[in-house]
């Protein structure tokens, strides 16, 4: 890729889910680890929207948290604009932090209920020292206007707003740091569809105006298809397929992607007979050996049970499946 803004190399994260020490000793149990993500590689170019799609336990939120620095990675590197985030000093990290922001899933939890909207939106301005005195207010009011709220909303508290308006406030807060890159973790999954459309359109408009780069995380394939310029599919913490544009939805390569697309309820009423989906996502504490998808895969071969498949080139990207090798 010509000019990646974010590059993720071999990113992995394990969580210690062991019982307390005393229980372990008494019950003679080993330490237990949950591998939330393993060996994830991708890069995001400036101005694009890279989407990560996956079901529960796929590790998509863990990746988001590692990228914005809420969780330290267990292994691998995250490079922002060429700088390894794990190696830069505190002052450089602080400068880097301003350049990426995050929008959260639940607009009812992501705004401090005791703060006025104006204070919420201007917090990044003050923290990063981007404005002083009356400038702060002016900038904050401009941001509220940008996201479709009015300046007099600054005096109100979050509970006075509907879900969609709260998500607008959260977007205004993210924008106030003047970031280049925004991680959006399920930004519309708590909203009703008609409001979701407003927020998705707003995010599109802002991207066009400000040249933002998005990492868009969602479980909703239709939303991802609408937003993404490139899409990665996660299954049990591993990236199973990455594909350019809408080709993922037209021509899925990995059996899991195919299954996922088949499972989406069909609004077009095409009456297609879909292949019945079988099985459920296994417990990530004891993931299957080899390819994590093999127990549910209709086309699995013996090799899938033993070897983790490497990533192979596909016409529009890459996919980790032995059958493509």
């Amino acid at each position: 890729m010509a000019d990646p803004l974010i590059e993720v190399r071999g990113l992995g994260r394990r969580f210690d889910v062991s019982k307390p020490w005393l229980n372990r000793v008494l019950e003679r149990e080993e330490r237990q680890y949950l591998t939330a993500t393993a060996d994830v590689n991708f890069s995001i170019a400036r101005g694009e929207t890279f989407a990560l799609v996956g079901e529960s336990g796929s590790g998509k939120s863990t990746i988001a948290k590692m990228i914005v620095g809420l969780l330290p990675p267990s292994e691998g590197q995250i490079l922002f604009d060429g700088q390894d985030m794990g190696k830069v000093g505190t002052s450089e990290l602080r400068a880097l932090r301003r350049r990426f922001q995050m929008i959260f899933q639940d607009p009812f939890a992501s705004l401090n209920p005791r703060w006025r909207v104006g204070d919420i939106v201007s917090e990044p301005l003050r923290t990063f020292g981007l404005a002083k005195g009356a400038e702060v207010t002016r900038e904050m009011e401009r941001l509220l206007d940008t996201v479709g709220l009015s300046a007099r909303d600054a005096e109100k508290f979050p509970h006075e707003f509907s879900g969609g308006q709260r998500q607008r406030i959260a977007i205004a807060r993210a924008l106030s740091a003047k970031p280049e890159f925004i991680v959006c973790d399920e930004p519309t999954s708590a909203l009703d569809v008609s409001v979701q459309a407003q927020i998705l359109n707003l995010m599109r408009d802002l991207q066009d105006e400000m040249g933002l780069t998005y990492l868009f995380i969602s479980h909703d394939l239709s939303v991802v298809r609408h937003m993404a310029t490139r899409t990665g599919v996660l299954y049990l913490g591993r990236l199973v397929e990455v594909s350019e544009g809408k080709s993922l939805f037209r021509d899925p390569q990995h059996p899991y992607t195919k299954m996922l697309l088949d499972a989406v309820p069909d609004l077009a009423l095409s009456g297609r007979r879909r292949t019945p989906v079988t099985g459920e996502i296994p417990n990530p504490i004891n993931p299957p050996s080899g390819c994590p998808f093999h127990p549910r895969c209709p086309v699995a071969i013996d090799k899938c049970k033993t070897d983790v498949p490497p990533s192979f080139q596909t016409p529009n990207g890459s996919a980790a499946c032995h059958l493509l090798g």
Partner: peptide, 19 residues
């Protein structure tokens, strides 16, 4: 119109103003 689909391409979703 506000529901994105897997088959239909559009740059913008139809949005109902307000809530």
């Amino acid at each position: 119109g506000s529901i994105p689909t897997l088959t239909h391409d559009s740059d913008r979703l139809v949005q109902i103003p307000g809530s």
